[in-house]
Each structure stands twice: as structure tokens, then as C-alpha cells.
């Protein structure tokens, strides 16, 4: 496990050449990748959400594409469409794949797209295939969608409904950098010199093998039961939660905990991994009731209460 820990430490160092701080965000993005799933990054503008995803994709020898969501974006702009092409004097329909046909898809400001466009993306995320007309096109593996959204400027946006937000394994909250980090950012990006050169670290095969390895990380039965109990309790905690998380959250929590254990170089899943992953797994899967909102509580506060109850 030492060698895998070294690999990830090198990866973080390479990302660190471009992105200052935000270690927890980077770890969680990697957890989503190792779990072969998708992540939703939420944070105020200018916190290096897009930069982080772009940097991670640069480190991986994977096809990257970006979708800037706007209200006038159509589903065909994402999935692709048929266009008429002339070849040897003959005109025929040819399928032009959309930006979704990539390994890492960055969907910027996903809450700006209309529900119809969102559903086209979310269908591809779930099925890992796209149907255009009467033809189905399978997406290349590995396939990740890393979406971003802005918690402010909600006017004219289409918030993801809970059923669709459930498709994302993690909802990663991006916070402001510390004063020391901000000083470093300023020094790095206001000085002379171009962007740092990054070396490619992973290719498709490496990522597939890492994903397989992550699934093999062993977990003790009582830790597994505790993880399930955490998700289960969200359904019974009627004092603060209106709707709890689904069994998909239990699967996600254990997979994410395994991914985190692998990244940190541990050869087993710890309770610490489960607790750390509970927040990004559950925060977009629970709906708080009026009592919690009246007390000014956020999803993270309620999750913290649950974790304190379930030791």
C-alpha cells in the first residue's frame, strides 16, 4: 500500500503546482474517480473548481471536454446530433458526437441548464450510453462527470431535483482558502512565468486497475454495519430530516470509504473514512424539515449530529 500512497502523494503534489490548497476537494474528486462515479462541486465563484478538474484531467491521459451550461443549451448540444455530410458527391447523415463523448466531462454551472438538458446529461451518467434517434452509442470508459454549481445567484437557475442529484456520488463543498494560501495564490499568479508543466501520471488502464483495487480494500463487518446504520438513521431521524437517503447512499458510502482508504495508503477501511465521507455522500441526499430550517441548521450540521449519536 506504501507504493499507492506514494503515487497519490505525487499526484497531489502535481496538482498542487497549479491549485493552491483545497486538499480535501482534490481527495474527494479522486475518491469519486476511484469509485467510478461522478461528483458535484459546489462553491462560490473563483475557488478553483474548474481549474482543479482541468488539472486532474491533464494529469490523466484521458479525453477531456467542457460543457458550459446556459439556459439555451439543448440536449443535442450535449449528446451530439446527426449532420449532413457530403462524401464523394453523396450526402448522408453522419453522427457528430457531442462533448459527452469524453472520459472526463466538466459540466460547468449545471444548475443553469434547463431540466431537459440536465436530464440528457444525467441519463448518460447513469446508463453510460447515449441514445440519439434510434441508435445507442456507448460511452468510452472510464467516464466521469464532474459538475460545478454556484450556491449564489440562484435567479434564473434550475436547481437539480433531489432524485437527479442522487446520481452524483459526492457533493463536494468548496471553501475559501486560508490567508496563507491566498498569499501564495497571489504570489504565484501575479508574478511572471507561465503555467507549470504537468506530467501525465495515469492512463486508462492505470485508472481501471486503481478502481478495481479500491473495491478490494477490506472492511470490517461492524464498520460496514455502522455505515449502513448512518444511512438508515437519516430515514428515522424525523426531528430534523424530512426525507432520508436511499440504499444508493449506503453503497456509495462504503465505496467512497474504500477509495479514501486507498488514497491515504491504508490497507483497511477505518471509521474515520466512513465519517469523513458521510458528509459529501449525504448532504445532497437528505431533505431537512421545517424544524431544522427554523433552527438555522444546514445539512452538514444534521449529519454531524447523526455521527455523534452513532459512535
Amino acid at each position: 500500500m506504501r507504493k499507492y500512497k506514494d503515487v497519490f502523494e505525487t499526484l497531489f503534489k502535481e496538482v498542487g503546482k497549479v491549485v493552491v490548497g483545497q486538499e480535501e476537494m482534490i481527495v474527494q474528486v479522486m475518491v469519486a474517480i476511484l469509485s467510478d462515479s461522478h461528483a458535484l462541486l459546489e462553491g462560490y465563484p473563483g475557488l478553483a473548481k474548474t481549474l482543479t478538474i482541468r488539472t486532474i484531467s491533464d494529469l490523466m491521459d484521458l479525453k477531456f471536454s467542457r460543457i458550459q451550461n446556459t439556459p439555451d443549451l439543448m440536449p443535442s448540444d450535449i449528446t451530439g446530433t446527426f449532420i449532413i455530410e457530403e462524401e464523394r458527391g453523396k450526402k448522408e447523415f453522419k453522427f457528430q458526437p457531442g462533448p459527452i463523448f469524453a472520459n472526463i466531462v466538466l459540466a460547468d454551472e449545471i444548475n443553469r441548464a434547463t431540466p431537459k438538458t440536465q436530464s440528457a446529461l444525467l441519463e448518460a451518467m447513469q446508463e453510460k450510453q447515449v441514445t440519439v434517434g434510434n441508435k445507442t452509442y456507448t460511452l468510452d470508459r472510464p467516464f466521469f462527470v464532474l459538475a460545478t454549481q454556484n450556491p449564489v445567484e440562484q435567479e434564473g437557475t434550475y436547481p437539480l431535483p433531489e432524485a437527479q442529484a442522487d446520481r452524483f456520488l459526492l457533493k463536494i463543498k468548496v471553501s475559501y482558502p486560508t490567508a496563507a494560501e491566498e498569499l501564495e495564490i497571489v504570489e504565484r499568479y501575479t508574478g511572471s512565468g507561465g503555467p507549470p508543466k504537468l506530467r501525465t501520471m495515469f492512463n486508462k488502464e492505470t485508472i481501471k486497475s486503481l478502481q478495481e483495487l479500491a473495491r478490494q480494500v477490506p472492511i470490517a463487518d461492524d464498520i460496514k454495519k455502522r455505515a449502513i446504520k448512518i444511512v438508515f438513521t437519516t430515514r428515522d431521524y424525523k426531528q430534523k430530516i424530512e426525507y432520508g437517503a436511499s440504499p444508493r447512499a449506503s453503497i456509495g458510502l462504503i465505496n467512497a470509504a474504500k477509495g479514501r482508504a486507498l488514497i491515504l495508503g491504508r490497507n483497511h477501511v477505518s471509521n474515520e473514512d466512513v465519517d469523513a465521507m458521510a458528509y459529501p455522500i449525504l448532504r445532497h441526499r437528505i431533505i431537512l424539515n421545517f424544524e431544522a430550517e427554523r433552527q438555522g441548521m444546514k445539512e452538514d450540521d444534521v449529519i454531524r449530529e447523526l455521527l455523534d449519536k452513532i459512535k
Binding site: 477490506p218 470490517a220 490497507n267 483497511h268 477501511v269
Partner: peptide, 25 residues
Amino acid sequence: LHEKLRTVNDNMAPTSEIVLELQQD
């Protein structure tokens, strides 16, 4: 040995290199 003993006890079959490494630890 925190959490390792219980994990090994619940994963006795050597299904992967990680499990083998944990058992050896």
C-alpha cells in the same frame, strides 16, 4: 492493531493483494 484485527477476522479469504498485505501486517 486498531481496526485491523476485526477487518482480518471478517476477511479471512485472501481475495486480493491488499487483504494479503493486511493479513501479513
